[in-house]
Design a protein around this nucleic acid. Structure first.
Lengths: 142, 142
DNA sequence: CTAGGTGCAAAAGGTTTGCGCTGAC
DNA sequence: GTCAGCGCAAACCTTTTGCACCTAG
């Protein structure tokens, strides 16, 4: 599903189609990274020099409310946004904050949660917490 | 493992034992909720009226670095801290922010990650994203 | 004694909000 | 024409930092 299609769907809910929103959503869908609001801002600014951070947040919150993106937080300062929830898992170092990818087939569990909770489940996120190889090496030196 | 025991272990790493730290850690271990820094602050303030928020954050970051607690973020304003990582899973409503518990046996996967990543894994966290029953009902009304 | 911790207050950084104007419908 | 969205800037809230004093080891 592409940006235009999603925004057309949202029109039924009183959400207006604007070029800024199209640009934001297109970027979220085409990138495989998990950009921060500020990164999205700078990217969209290349196309729309007048765009403001407020508009970015406004759009992100609107999309989040309608379930079209996930807001992730890795404990560092700013949130990251993911337009492709079904992705892969992460390992976060509690010491230095490094985030590594962990590739493995997604666990097939969403249906079980949906059946037992009454929630409409869009996806899940899994993170492992630990100490990265570098920090482990540094600890041994002390 | 209780607060005093953990703090004694940390002494070897040059971390000092202070009554404030004991109070913070005891609260984290005894509560089953996931308090914010501010909630911890107010709780500890009952015992140590002079304690400051800076000390709370200082201690939380120290504990996090040593792997004794997890910093969670649910997209709302402030981080939440969990002294008992091995717990249960959560379902977060993208629309209203409600966090519901989902009880099920923990997925046995940490060893697999440890073997394949080089990280020392302390635990994992899993969250499901979707729309809660109340918000689903509200959407249908429109 | 002396480093690390504390309390306080100021600063920093991310996110939200208010307001007048614009543009989608 | 109307109202949601825009840009701008100020406000807000959480977290970090700097500094003088204190205290655990």
């Amino acid at each position: 599903m592409d940006a235009i299609e999603i925004l057309k769907q949202l029109k039924d809910k009183g959400v207006r189609f604007t070029p800024q929103r199209q640009a934001i959503l297109e970027f979220l869908l085409e990138t495989v990274s998990h950009p921060t609001a500020d990164e999205i801002y700078h990217h969209v600014k290349a196309k729309f020099p007048g765009v403001s951070l407020g508009t970015i947040y406004n759009t992100l919150n609107m999309l989040k409310e309608h379930g079209h993106l996930l807001e992730l937080s890795y404990g560092d300062m700013s949130s990251r946004f993911d337009g492709n929830p079904k992705n892969h898992y992460h390992i976060v170092c509690s010491k230095c904050g490094t985030v590594a990818d962990f590739h493995r087939p997604l666990i097939d569990i969403d249906q079980e949660v949906m059946d037992n909770s009454g929630f409409l489940i869009m996806g899940h996120r899994m993170e492992f917490y630990g100490i990265c190889p570098e920090c482990r090496a540094n600890e041994k030196l002390n």
